[in-house]
């Protein structure tokens, strides 16, 4: 009994090293200059750490603005997506109507579009309604493009939710809104946290839409900030590394927070149940 566990832990630890290494690598990458990055072994630690990469990132360009925009655009889009997707999934799995399966099918088709083919039509639509260079265009695009995926993930969980509780609630004269917001949403905290994490990562790292629909500095996000260091013929990779590092830290913190909700939710739900 003991030996297999030792072996298992060794394998798990080895995988852990592989998985955490990219973060360490990125940190070391962000403290190098191009000569070191391309010329020396990628394993090597920076010879003399170039903290000036971080100084450069902080002082050149508008990283503060970018950061603020990334945060609010991500938070708003994630909240909208997860709320709307939960409502749709609830209606599809719990409410009685004939068109629920075709409608689900429509959402699934929405997952299949390659984003680059949508760029030109989307731009032309936003242009017609004056939403170009308006962060609203980004928020609704993120929401729409992540809805199908979020709904599909939620779906599997909603089917496994016990129905007894809602039946009892309805018997007691509970309205649908109350049922959804007060009972269903709290019960699905684990999967909601999961979809929040996934949406958060996608939106935080997205740049094709921002790049295309936004032109003012005041609305750009962190991923666009990377471009500040890509030149016509040369790219300053150390500074890009520093930007990436700055950009991944808040995500890491938020991730750890929501990652714990995956378990908390269960226990909370279990207590209520």
């Amino acid at each position: 009994m003991k030996l297999p566990y030792v072996f298992l832990y060794m394998v798990l630890a080895l995988i852990a090293v592989f998985q955490i290494y990219p973060l360490i690598w990125l940190l070391s990458f962000s403290l190098k200059d191009n000569t070191e990055i391309f010329g020396k072994s990628p394993f090597a630690l920076p010879e003399s750490p170039k903290w000036e990469n971080y100084v450069k990132v902080w002082t050149d360009g508008n990283i503060g603005t970018y950061f603020f925009n990334s945060v609010w655009i991500t938070v708003l889009s994630v909240a909208l997506t997860v709320l709307l997707a939960s409502m749709v999934t609830f209606a599809i799995t719990r409410m009685n109507w004939k068109l629920n399966k075709p409608v689900l099918g429509l959402f699934m088709v929405g997952y299949m579009i390659p984003i680059h083919s949508a760029l030109i039509p989307l731009f032309s639509m936003f242009n017609k309604v004056g939403l170009i260079d308006n962060p609203l265009s980004i928020v609704i695009t993120y929401t729409a493009y992540n809805l199908p995926l979020t709904i599909m993930i939620l779906l599997g969980f909603y089917y496994s939710l016990p129905r007894e509780m809602e039946e009892a609630a309805i018997m007691d004269g509970c309205s649908i809104n109350r049922l959804f917001f007060k009972i269903i949403l709290p019960m699905t905290t684990p999967v909601v946290s999961t979809t929040v994490i996934i949406n958060m990562i996608f939106n935080w790292n997205e740049f094709v839409f921002v790049n295309t629909f936004i032109s003012s500095e005041k609305y750009k996000t962190l991923t666009v900030g990377i471009q500040n260091f890509i030149g016509q013929y040369m790219t300053d990779w150390g500074a890009i590394g520093a930007t990436l590092m700055i950009s991944v830290l808040p995500l890491l913190i938020a991730f750890i927070f929501f990652s714990d909700r995956i378990i908390d939710g269960i226990t909370a739900g279990a207590v209520k149940g």
């Binding site: 050149d60 360009g61 032109s215 500040n228 030149g231 016509q232 500074a239």
Partner: peptide
């Protein structure tokens, strides 16, 4: 409106 491709961080002189 003027678009160019010399970012401040990389092509400071330009």
């Amino acid at each position: 409106q003027f678009m160019h491709l010399w970012p401040e961080g990389n092509s400071t002189a330009h």
